[in-house]
Structure formats: structure tokens, C-alpha cells
Amino acid sequence: MKKYFYVIENALLNLSKNKGRNFLQGAMIFAVITTTVIALSIHNTSVTLISEYKAHFGSEVSISPERMPSNLPGITAEQALAFSQSEYLRDFEVSEPDDSSEAVDAVFYLKSPELLEAFAAEVRGKGLPDGYKVDIDRDAYARMVTPLEGLQDISFTFLLIVLALGAAIMVLLSVIAVRERKYEIGVLRAMGMKKRKLAMGLGVEIIAITCVCYLFGMIAGWLLSQPISDALLTGQQSAELMNAVAAQPLTSVKISVSPLTALEIFGVAILLASIAGIISVRQVTKYEPIKILMERN
């Protein structure tokens, strides 16, 4: 292992020697990581929220007349209590009847949104008359989930574009960087440095640049993801929806960079570094020192 130390030392020394090229490569990695942080944190937060909202609004069931206005009397407290005796429910709420009628407002909380049809069949079996519907609050559901689904789609598409563009630019930069360093590679190979050590040196350089960019990219991404998410979310509110729903729709989501997101971004960073590394190694193995030196001299 000790015989590889000089390779690492040489690689780190190279970082300070070729500032312009390394800065360009670093700037590219930084941009990709920052945009990935933004896209991934928005995407992951949306996914979590959608799943929470689906569980919440998708399991909140009420029984109401199918058509409004309606002459139907509504369900009674006895009926509500009978319906609440169901294995599909985790909880229920029944309001006190008002003075004018025996009808009550009842909300039933399903153990899971998928149990809606089974619960509806059960209450029909227990005597719920025709003309009533057993359903979730679809307006509230749409109000909360639709903008998030839009946000999720945008962030995912954005992430794919960033990764594809980032990978393409990294490939290009690596090819240019190795070409620019052809002479240095030729000299080192002529001195007897093995291809694998040379490749390792290039790998160490790109990983060192990536790690620094990862740190700064995480900070920049974390700072930018909240305002960008808010701006995107505002764009997701359709005028129709705003008018149709009385309650305030979702206009802000608290974006967080979870450890999992940080890990995913690190994976992306390493992926980019690997792409750059593989391209560099392929280039290096292609070059014969004698040809490089002959070209130069």
C-alpha cells in the first residue's frame, strides 16, 4: 500500500498545479450537485407528503347524500354507531344531533385508503339507504395532493435532465482534461509509471474535487431548495382549483434534506466522478508514451 502513497500525493499536488482546469471541472460538478440537491430534496419531500396526505385524506370517509340539495334526512346516531363497528376502521367521530333533526355528521377513519370499497359495501349491508354516498373528501384531497404531484413530476424530470446533462458534460470535460494532460501522462508513463497507478492518480484527483464540490453543493442546494420549491408550488395552483375550493390550498411545503437524500446525492456525485474517472482511464490506456512524446518533441 505504501508504494501507492506517492500516487495520491502526486494527485493532490496536481490539484493545486492545474487550478484553471480543476476549477472548471469543480464548477461543473458543483452545479450538478446543487441542482441535484434541489431536485432530489423537493422530489423526496413531495413523495413523503403525498404519501402522508393520501393516507390522511384517503382514509377520512364521510356519508352524505349523492346529490345536493337533497331531501334525504341524513344518517342517525344509531346508524353511525352501527357503521362504526367495522374492522376496517381505526377511529370515528360522530357529532351531536341538532334540535331540528336526528341527523348527525359522522366521519370514519379507515385503517387504509384501499379499504374504502369494502367499508362502503359493509355499510350498505348494514342498511345504508340508496341515495347516500360513502366517499372521501375528494376536494380536500385534490387541493393538497395535486400541486404536490405536479411538483414531484417537475422535480423528477428536472433531476433526469440535470443528471443526463451533467454526465454528458463530465464526459466532455474529462476527455478535454486528459487530452490537455497528454504530455504529463506521456512523461509519467515514460518514467515507468504503470497505467493503473496513473489511472488511480486521476481517480484521486476527481474524487477530491467531487468531495469538495459535494460539501459546497449540499450547502447551496439546501439554501436554494426552499425558495425554488415555493415558486414551483405557486405555479402548480390552477385557477379553477383555487375557485372551486373554499379552503386555502397548499402554497408552501417545508423542504428538508434528509440523511437519505444526502446519501442519494453522494451516490450521484460518486456516479459522476466514476463517469469522469472511467473516461479518463480509457483515454490513458489508449495513449502510448512514445507517441505522445514524439508528437510533443
Partner: peptide, 21 residues
């Protein structure tokens, strides 16, 4: 590679040194 690294020492006409170092 080993041969070049250990057994021969080459003095090139164009020097072939690492100019940034």
C-alpha cells in the same frame, strides 16, 4: 513499465520533464 522505471534511465533530447513541478 518496470524495465523503464528500474533498469534504464533515459535522457531525452526534449528533456520531457514535468514543467509544472
Amino acid at each position: 513499465d518496470d524495465y523503464r522505471a528500474k533498469s534504464v534511465g533515459v535522457i531525452f533530447q526534449g528533456y520531457n520533464l514535468l514543467t509544472n513541478f
